[in-house]
Amino acid sequence: MQDLWLIGIGTGSPVHVTGEGMQALRDAATILVPQKGAGKDDLAELRRRIIAASGTTARIVPFDYPVRDPGLPYLERVDAWHDQIAERWHAAMGKGGSAGPVALLVWGDPSLYDSTLRIAARLPVPPRIRVVPGITAIQALTAAHAIPLNTVNGPVQITTGRRLRDHGWPMGAETVAVMLDGECSFRRLDPAGVTIWWGAFLGMPQQVLYDGPLADAAQPIEAIRTAARARHGWIMDTYLLRKA
């Protein structure tokens, strides 16, 4: 049975990879590096920098990442996409050429709003999974803004931009951490009494932060996000919302 190690790498900064993660890279026999196409070469390059910083002698196997079919309904589209990713993983793992653990670097943490574990379960022969946790985007965001995740005894809801857009403010939540929002869904909320702390490229040299009352900050954040994505060709951002 193949060993597959899923190594959380934080938000792309080598200093956000834990000591355990670096050791896992050194101990791996093969490391898979996804290539996400034109305009996203930085993503593969960031992975390669982390790999180089670990000092590993593992064999590096790149593979092309599939794209989602925009013509399918959302859940069907994601399901088909995960099948395709699993097929690419399986093919790339076969190119490793040596026995030993295969490692895959995962943004943030493989257990938090990430489908890596679900994709691994779709491999033709289920591997032995080892998860090495990384710094999550939420940790990086709250640290960058020097704020706590919650208030004293206050509830926190972690959700996606899609759910915020479709269902509004989660019932009973005082603080909402929002992941995977490509549409600035905070613009759809009633901003009264809401503060936002937003960040992109967390922990990287190009990190950008913005915070303030949602009524005042929503438009500047959207403009900053649009400009940053155009400049870099991609963006990874997250934000925290809190009601007074």
Rank of each mutant, 00 (worst) to 15 (best):
A177P: 04
V178C: 01
V178E: 00
M179P: 07
M179T: 12
L180T: 06
L180F: 15
D181Y: 01
D181G: 03
G182H: 03
G182S: 13
E183R: 11
E183M: 10
E183S: 09
C184H: 06
S185A: 13
S185K: 13
F186Y: 14
R187D: 07
R188H: 12
R188Y: 10
D190R: 10
D190F: 02
P191N: 02
P191A: 05
A192M: 11
A192E: 15
A192V: 11
A192I: 07
V194I: 14
V194T: 12
T195L: 08
I196D: 02
W197E: 11
W197A: 13
W197C: 11
W197P: 11
W198G: 01
G199W: 03
G199R: 08
F201Y: 15
F201W: 04
F201P: 00
F201D: 05
F201M: 09
L202V: 09
L202S: 02
G203Q: 08
M204E: 11
M204L: 12
M204S: 07
P205W: 11
P205C: 11
P205D: 07
Q207K: 07
V208T: 13
L209V: 10
L209M: 06
L209K: 06
Y210K: 14
Y210C: 13
D211S: 14
D211Q: 14
D211R: 15
D211C: 13
G212P: 05
G212L: 12
L214R: 04
L214S: 02
L214Y: 00
L214I: 02
L214E: 01
A215V: 05
A215Q: 03
A215N: 01
A215I: 04
D216I: 13
D216Q: 12
D216E: 14
A217I: 06
A217P: 01
A217K: 06
A217T: 06
A218E: 03
Q219K: 11
Q219Y: 00
P220V: 09
I221A: 04
I221T: 01
A223N: 09
A223Q: 14
A223M: 07
A223V: 12
R225P: 00
R225D: 00
R225A: 10
T226H: 12
A227T: 08
A227C: 03
A228V: 07
A228I: 06
R229V: 00
R229H: 02
R229N: 02
A230I: 01
A230Y: 02
R231N: 05
R231D: 08
R231Q: 11
